[in-house]
Simulated assay, not measured.
Amino acid sequence: MSTSLPNLTWLRTFEAAARLRNFTAAGEELGLTQAAVSLHIKSLEAKLGCALFLRQPRNLQLSEMGKAYLPHVRRALDDLSLSTLGLFGPEMVRAVTLRVPVSTAVLWLAPKLPEFHAAHPGLELRLVSTIWADSLEDEDVDIDIRSGHGDWPGVRAEKLSTEAIVPVCPAGEDAPVSEQTPLHILGQEDNWARYGEAQGVAVPDRFGISVDTSAAALEMIAAGQGVAVVLARYVRAAVEAGRPVRCAGPEVPVRLAHYLVERDGRAPPRAEVATVRDWVKGVFAG
């Protein structure tokens, strides 16, 4: 099909000339000479086999075929422009891709993004979330934040935080933790055991519901269902945001932490990447 289409440059020239009704004005808008505009139009007309303009002294008008063709050309150019803008963004936007564990992205970073964008309106932050850090193949990620113990091979890991865990339950729930439905978060099997050992309380031997992220667990708890042991920073952020949840016990420090991860041998970061990286460090330090 593409071999039957006219040259895109000719179509852009036709649209400008038809809109401005003047070859010279169209040339000025497109950065072309009047002769180049005329040549583009003649080439397009030869390709289509019909005249698109009625050429009269000091009076340029569209032919009937030109009038019929113009809306289709304009719509096609508009669609192409919108698609390009949507996929790649305007030229003045500088994009930085930040990969973060999904619960950290949703519960911790997302509420802080408006402040970031207010301070850096010309910088686009692309947030890529994963449940486990290694669940994606290598991709074009500018900044990689992981949750773990900092022992991943082939990377340099800079510690951003220390963490603690805490049981969280619905805000209006007064029953002891042991009497509420325990929620299990996949991949965090030892949270209950660590908390129980530190506080000298019984650990559930079975769970009523299992979910795959802390974000899902907090949503269920906010809806009045169950109790879970999650990172304390997530609970504090949820309470500050007005979510109907509360801490159901004291915090217990754990070895788990968030790390800024960089692959060995990577080139120095772009200026905008350094800006986002400094912001991320400040967010976790605060």
Rank of each mutant, 00 (worst) to 15 (best):
S2T: 10
L8Y: 10
T9A: 14
L11H: 01
T13M: 02
F14P: 00
F14L: 07
F14I: 06
A18S: 13
N22H: 13
A25D: 14
E29I: 12
G31P: 07
T33C: 06
Q34T: 09
Q34R: 12
H40D: 13
H40K: 06
H40R: 14
A46L: 00
R55W: 04
R58L: 09
L60N: 06
Q61P: 02
Q61S: 11
L62C: 06
S63N: 02
K67Y: 08
A68R: 04
H72V: 13
L80Y: 08
P90R: 10
E91R: 10
V93E: 13
A95S: 14
V96A: 04
L98E: 04
R99F: 01
T104C: 12
A110R: 11
A119R: 14
A119Q: 15
P121R: 01
G122N: 14
L125M: 08
R126Y: 11
R126F: 10
R126S: 12
R126A: 15
L127Q: 05
S129C: 15
S135L: 14
E137A: 15
D138W: 11
D138L: 15
D138F: 15
E139L: 15
V141E: 05
D142C: 07
D142A: 06
H149P: 10
D151A: 15
D151E: 14
W152C: 04
P153G: 09
R156C: 07
R156M: 12
R156D: 09
L160N: 00
L160E: 03
S161Y: 04
T162L: 15
T162G: 13
P170L: 03
G172P: 02
D174F: 06
Q180M: 07
L183S: 00
H184N: 04
Q188G: 09
Q188S: 10
E189M: 06
D190M: 12
N191W: 03
G196C: 08
Q199K: 13
V203L: 10
V203G: 05
A223G: 09
V229T: 02
L231D: 05
Y234L: 08
R236L: 03
P244V: 04
C247I: 09
G249K: 00
H258W: 01
Y259A: 00
L260M: 01
A267V: 11
A267D: 15
E272W: 01
V276R: 02
W279N: 01
W279S: 00
A285Y: 05
